[in-house]
Design a protein around this nucleic acid. Structure first.
Lengths: 148, 148
DNA sequence: TATAACGTTTACGTAAACGTCAATGCGACC
DNA sequence: GGTCGCATTGACGTTTACGTAAACGTTATA
């Protein structure tokens, strides 16, 4: 875990904090996924942790990227789409053509997301209504809908 | 919501209203999916069109269900989950236990949907910012971000 | 009447996203 | 120094959601 007390960072000289890292198992627990899935995401080019010997070491940035990937999954995107979006997010911004591409793709994606937003609002409304009906029917039967 | 026998169309004749139906190819075109997919959804218990000879005939209700299925897919649900939700939507409401189950599952699902909603808002905000930055950088370079 | 344009079933193929071994390495502890 | 415990890399298996092709029936039109 926190390995051998060999030479520590010269805290008095440098202002950089210890820079926490994580093992694959720690991240897996935290995000409730398997190590296998995390390695798979790396194979797919979504993560690129450093190594300590053979073991993978995850930085704050890798951790953030993993969270981002999982959020994308919850929203129904494929790993390929998520990769494109992450790459876009960290894309080269040096040239005009690159910037134009970023603008175009961002707008495209926001459009998609807004469609999902409408779908989502509609489903939420529908299921609130379903719930409301059921609750009312329970009341009509003289049953408290909140009791076990 | 029953009869309002005012100055509506004369219902004097014996016939019921036309009741439009659709073929599988028509629905496939309309919803931009393949007939194969529509048949697959039927195999999975998501649709149950009637038949005219061997051919499938889709009612207004089937059409609605198909749209519902596709919306669920866009929101990242599996066909199994969608089936559960659709079944819930049309579930037996006769008994107290059934009604309780409906209330519980509806609330569960709304909770899931609200998580997605937060995820979605966050992603929209992020990509609007990505776009905004790129647009600003183009302006800084003296380029009109809107021109081709 | 033939053939195109749809529809059907059956069956095998496939891409995505992992799960599940198996064999192995490696530092930690007893 | 043996055994945990966690890490690694293959490699094959599995589930989901269809795609694709073959073989065939049914209606419309030339």
């Amino acid at each position: 875990m926190t390995s051998t007390p060999t030479l520590d960072a010269p805290r008095s000289a440098t202002k950089t904090p210890p820079a926490r890292t994580w093992t694959i198992a720690e991240l897996a627990r935290e995000y409730n996924v398997t190590p296998r899935a995390i390695r798979f995401y790396e194979d797919e080019g979504l993560l690129f942790p450093t190594r300590a010997g053979m073991s993978r070491i995850y930085s704050q940035g890798d951790r953030w990227r993993l969270g981002w990937v999982l959020r994308g999954k919850r929203l129904g995107f494929s790993l390929a789409e998520i990769k494109e979006l992450l790459d876009l997010y960290h894309a080269d911004r040096s040239g005009v053509q690159q910037l134009r591409a970023i603008v175009r793709k961002s707008r495209e994606h926001v459009g998609e997301l807004e469609t999902k937003l409408r779908d989502l609002r509609a489903q939420i409304a529908e299921f609130r209504e379903v719930e409301g009906h059921a609750v009312q029917m329970l009341r009509d039967k003289g049953v408290d809908p909140e009791s076990e």
